[in-house]
Design a protein around this nucleic acid. Structure first.
Lengths: 229, 229
DNA sequence: GGCGCGTCAAGAGCAGTGCTCTCGATTTAG
DNA sequence: CTAAATCGAGAGCACTGCTCTTGACGCGCC
């Protein structure tokens, strides 16, 4: 990349970053669909058309913010995983970290895990950052399996058919982890995001809100559910 | 209500419905944030300002669509529950019905379970239609408890503290159901919507897509998880 | 060193949006 | 029958994303 080789390159990189920062501020304040190119350019003291030299469209700006959000969340998850040595503690720490990031950045969370915006198709460049959290969880399970603290519950059914095939391809990223644990991992994974989304999007108001204890109970029960002792 | 008392009342009710229908078509075709009052009015051959006689703002139109969506989904869930006599079969049928409706009406699902639109606050009128699905599930559990087929797993921990209090207030809608089953119901409930949202919003592409078998496996395991035999 | 290419911010402009206000026409209610 | 309420239509405001053109500036090559 040779970033900052010439003055022009440096200015361009800096301005690109400033645009993203301003956009992120607007995103946090107003939400994704109220994010306006013109408002961003106004905040930066430039004319709206100049912004198109850095991002060819509003959707491209959103894509950049999406990738940044995935990366920020992924970094938090990886840091949480490293902060604990025991696999079960690490698993729970990652779950807590995801929730904490989501609560701290609700609009960015909505951007990546809420309804997809407009008629916009997520480009291929987002899938790698998007997978960092689940890969972190897979890593914890692999480590748990290697150290013998992963004991698949007896009542867990053995996956069959297409589901078994799909889980089989996932073992590449979770070496050594039994298929039935991987199946329950998918359950715990989707439950985690369903729970966080419900909390953030107001679906729990009037019943399980505040959700702190529910969250701790659910993540704990699901960790046990998939054999993390 | 005295609907249709005068010709004007009848015309107003009809036109209100036509507006909602046209808006729903646009919603399905373009998504919530591309839904435009002017396009709706164009489709109906009227001027945009006339539409404000029926819905005071775009957000009010969206609210009407949200309530209709909750009601449509709730009706599907209730019908599915009535189609089965055995509690476990009824539970699974409701889960399948929710997913089927979501797949058939992705934009409406996104409208009610995706990220909340713009700076818009869901009015109190939405909470009653919004609770129909979970109340249906509670009803199935109560019936299962009454008929003795609900056997809480031994390893389910007893809820404590605030969580126990929150679940206690929910027993009003699920009479007789043990607290620890209600706690696991909340887990299964959030997992259901997390799984459906991930499938609909493209988070499963490349791993668990198509998700039919994963869905059947997950709902079955969670039904067992909360003691539905 | 200067010259030309590529990049840059700026401005005007287009088509679209939500929403408000005013205006006659029509229907309703007293 | 008359006054009030309601209606659709139209003009207009402030805003949006985006395109095209213009003129200036920094850069690397000769």
């Amino acid at each position: 990349m040779n970033a900052g080789r010439t003055a022009r390159d440096r200015a361009r990189a800096e301005l690109t970053q400033e645009i993203k920062d301003a956009a992120r501020r607007q995103l946090a304040a107003e939400g994704a669909e109220r994010l306006s190119l013109r408002a961003v350019s106004r905040e930066l003291g430039m004319v709206s058309s100049a912004l198109y030299r850095y991002f060819p469209s509003r959707d491209e700006l959103l894509t950049a913010l999406i990738i940044d959000a995935y990366d920020a969340l992924g970094a938090e998850a990886e840091a949480a995983a490293k902060s604990e040595t025991e696999p079960r503690a690490a698993w729970l720490a990652v779950c807590r970290a995801v929730r904490a990031w989501a609560i701290a950045h609700p609009q960015e969370y909505a951007l990546i895990y809420g309804s997809p915006v407009s008629g916009y198709q997520a480009p291929q460049t987002t899938v790698q950052p998007a997978s960092r959290v689940i890969l972190t969880l897979f890593g914890i399970l692999s480590q748990a399996q290697a150290s013998g603290v992963l004991v698949p519950p007896d009542d867990a059914p053995e996956p069959k058919g297409l589901l078994a095939e799909q889980l089989q391809t996932l073992t590449e990223y979770a070496p050594g982890v039994p298929l039935k644990v991987l199946g329950r991992t998918a359950i715990a994974w989707t439950q985690l995001y369903g729970m966080i989304s419900f909390e953030l999007f107001g679906q729990l108001v009037g019943s399980m809100d505040p959700a702190d204890e529910f969250f701790a109970d659910a993540t704990g029960q699901l960790a046990t559910f998939l054999g993390l002792n």
